[in-house]
Amino acid sequence: MDDGQLFPLPIKAVVIDLDGTLLHTAPDLAEAANRMLADLGMPPVSEKTLKSYIGNGVGQLIKRTLTGDMHGEPDAELFARAKPLFEKNYHEVLSLHSRPFPDVVEGLQAMRQTGYRLACITNKAERFTVPLLKQTDLHHYFELILSGDTLPKMKPHPMPLLHACEHFGITPDKMLLIGDSQNDTEAARAAGCHVFCVPYGYNHGNHVSLLDQDAVVDSLLAATRLIRKADL
């Protein structure tokens, strides 16, 4: 964090990532990806490997699954066949095993009670984001939900965070992003927001202590101890 910046940070709004921060979605994403591979006559991939592919939207997840490479580009025809198969399968298993991480609900309740305005900002497509939040009973906590296809750009571009600041009528220094990956820290720094990282998420297998964050917090509830409601 910046020299001279003291906890608790004065915050008016908290924006939270979805996959790997709010919800443990890896099992269902892996199930959908492996069903897609089976439909294509391709061998399955381990959940651990698929977990490392999460974080840059559905398209990238599919490409990584097909190629076994974080930056791989599959044959265009194969990708065109695979994408609707993945989407169909993911709709079928969307919340089969996906559950909030420990202290997520308690953290959201504490933030609401304190008076922070809350948003969920994710790179997951809206057609999956909204049903998933509703099915896991988290939707009602958020005043604003921005998915990977809501705006022209998604994280790590700062556009979603700046859009949230505009929505809340606040300056970026009064907003906190809680996430689990480099996408989150890069977006926050570019927007001028504070950022905390949880250590249990999907940062492509790398520990979040190596990222440019203000704090690593064990849970959303733990994050509430490092912030305070900013003066109006």
Rank of each mutant, 00 (worst) to 15 (best):
M1S: 11
D2R: 15
D2V: 14
D3S: 00
Q5F: 01
L6G: 01
L6C: 08
L9K: 06
P10G: 03
I11V: 14
A13E: 00
V14N: 01
V15L: 09
I16F: 01
D19Y: 04
G20R: 03
T21W: 00
H24W: 02
H24S: 13
A26K: 02
A26G: 01
P27N: 14
D28R: 07
E31N: 04
A32F: 04
A32I: 01
A33N: 10
N34F: 06
M36H: 08
D39A: 15
L40G: 09
M42T: 00
P44N: 08
S46W: 07
K48R: 13
S52K: 06
Y53K: 03
G55H: 04
Q60D: 05
M70F: 15
M70H: 11
G72L: 15
E73W: 00
P74G: 05
P74K: 07
A76H: 12
F79Y: 13
F79A: 06
R81C: 02
K83L: 14
K83Q: 12
F86Q: 06
F86A: 05
F86S: 02
F86C: 06
V93L: 08
S95H: 11
R99A: 14
P100L: 12
P100Q: 14
P100W: 12
F101L: 09
P102H: 12
D103M: 08
L108C: 10
A110K: 14
R117G: 02
A119Q: 07
T122L: 01
T122M: 03
A125E: 14
R127M: 15
F128A: 04
V130K: 11
L132T: 01
L133S: 03
Q135A: 13
Q135S: 07
T136D: 03
T136V: 09
H139G: 03
F142Y: 13
F142A: 05
F142S: 08
E143Y: 07
L144I: 13
L144S: 02
L144P: 03
L146V: 15
S147P: 00
D149C: 09
T150V: 10
L151Y: 10
P152N: 13
K153I: 05
K153V: 04
L161R: 06
L161V: 09
F168T: 10
G169W: 13
I170R: 05
I170E: 05
T171C: 05
T171V: 14
P172Q: 14
D173A: 13
D173E: 15
L176C: 09
L176T: 06
D180L: 00
S181G: 12
N183P: 00
A187G: 07
A190W: 00
A191R: 02
C197F: 02
V198P: 04
P199F: 08
P199T: 11
Y200R: 07
G201N: 02
Y202G: 01
N203Y: 08
H204G: 04
G205Y: 11
G205D: 13
H207M: 08
L210C: 03
Q213A: 15
D214H: 15
A215R: 15
A215P: 01
D218V: 06
S219Y: 09
L220P: 03
A222D: 13
R225A: 15
R228M: 10
R228F: 04
R228S: 11
K229P: 06
K229I: 15
L232M: 06
